[in-house]
Design a protein around this nucleic acid. Structure first.
Length: 362
DNA sequence: AAATACCACAACCGCGGGTCA
DNA sequence: CTGACCCGCGGTTGTGGTATT
């Protein structure tokens, strides 16, 4: 049985909001607040709208201090950096851009920024991805690898490549004039974010793979007890098909049999089909992006007062000891949450590994 | 001038998590 | 513990405007 609808679909108006509706909603919320119940709100004020629609209209349009359009170069850079870092976590990205809504940023990315950043390399990257594809017994090109990559992953990978291209001919890393121009406060923000994510075991970014590391819950290269419940059948299935996680490459692990493999030593493509090691290349993504973002400075070690203002970071610092580690993969739709905000992403509860899928997508 | 394609953005939808009775 | 309810999220669709043919 499906989920019950949140409202009576037959009796709610859909489509664009009229100025009268806007005025009603705005006036009421400004006077009484939302009453913490969006579903009941439209009835109270006589709007034939779904509560969710009211909420969206308020948050994305009517709420005070909302900025529309006119994204600055600095905002572009932040969006780009965070997208590469954490993917399509629009609410997280929006939290770093005051006055911007997740919907606005999402639309802006999908319609403009993505094309701006990726457009020029579309053709060459398609060739490159094609060359990465496997060939079957008949020598027919199999693009399943690239097809298996989520669009988000592809975009992020392409962005990474774009950065690499920038690096090569003109010593991008060594030429500050080519670095994206960020306001010092914005650079500080991003570095603080990255620092916290990297330093904290509950980081979004986990460069070191668990298997080679002694640590809580790990025994050599074996999937730790209670950590990953991948079945042999599933593992074999994975072994026989896709050997790197299609949608998560920030920190990548490979599964073979019951073992988690460090991407730096495991060569799944070479193992199976004698192709270049896509996995290693892809898994290098994150550290190179780190370099890109951090080489502009020395190693960034924020002091306590440097992260003031980021409550989420303070929370991390306060509970570092509690956590083991977790994946930075947020692409998966798993049994765990797919809802993140600027704090929840950074919070320290680690129970991210509850099924094989998540483990596989380390 | 009309038809078509493309673009930008607002709005909707369905899902999963959190809360609470 | 369970189920109902609500919230918030990311993905998708709809729509109006603009550019191109």
């Amino acid at each position: 049985m499906g989920r019950a609808p949140c409202c009576d679909k037959a009796n709610v108006k859909k489509g664009p909001w009229s100025s009268e509706e806007d005025a009603k909603l705005k006036a009421y919320i400004e006077q009484y607040g939302t009453g913490s119940n969006w579903i009941a709100l439209p009835q109270k004020i006589g709007l034939k709208r779904c509560g969710k629609s009211c909420r969206l209209r308020w948050l994305n349009y009517l709420r005070p201090n909302i900025k529309h359009g006119g994204f600055s170069e600095e905002e572009d850079n932040i969006i780009c950096s965070l997208y590469i870092s954490i993917g399509s976590r629009w609410s997280v990205i929006a939290a770093q851009l005051p006055g911007r809504t997740d919907n606005d940023i999402k639309n802006y990315w999908n319609t403009r920024l993505k094309k701006k950043l990726l457009g020029r390399r579309k053709e060459s990257n398609m060739n490159r991805f094609s060359s990465m594809g496997a060939k079957d017994a008949n020598g027919i090109e199999d693009n399943s690898y690239s097809q298996a990559l989520s669009s988000s992953a592809l975009e992020r990978l392409q962005l990474h490549m774009q950065l690499q291209t920038l690096q090569k001919p003109s010593s991008f890393y060594n030429n500050p004039a080519l670095w994206p121009k960020l306001h010092p406060q914005q650079e500080k923000m991003i570095r603080s974010l990255q620092y916290s994510l990297n330093e904290n075991p509950s980081s979004l970014w986990q460069h070191d793979f668990p298997s080679p590391q002694p640590g809580p819950g790990f025994t050599g290269a074996t999937v730790p007890e209670g950590f990953a419940k991948i079945s042999n059948t599933k593992a074999n299935e994975l072994d026989n098909s896709l050997h790197f996680t299609p949608s998560s490459y920030n920190s990548m692990a490979f599964v073979t049999g019951n073992n988690l493999m460090d991407s730096s030593t495991y060569d799944p493509k070479a193992d199976v089909i004698g192709q270049p090691n896509v996995g290693v290349e892809v898994s290098a993504f994150q550290s190179e992006l780190d370099d890109f973002l951090n080489n502009k400075t020395m190693v960034f070690v924020p002091q306590e007062d440097q992260v003031v203002g980021f409550d989420c970071l303070r929370e991390i610092n306060s509970s570092k000891d509690d956590v083991i580690w977790w994946s930075n993969d947020f692409d998966t739709k798993s049994s765990t949450s797919n809802s993140w905000d600027s704090t929840s992403v950074l919070q320290t509860e680690p129970p991210m590994f509850q099924d094989y899928e998540l483990c596989y997508k380390l």
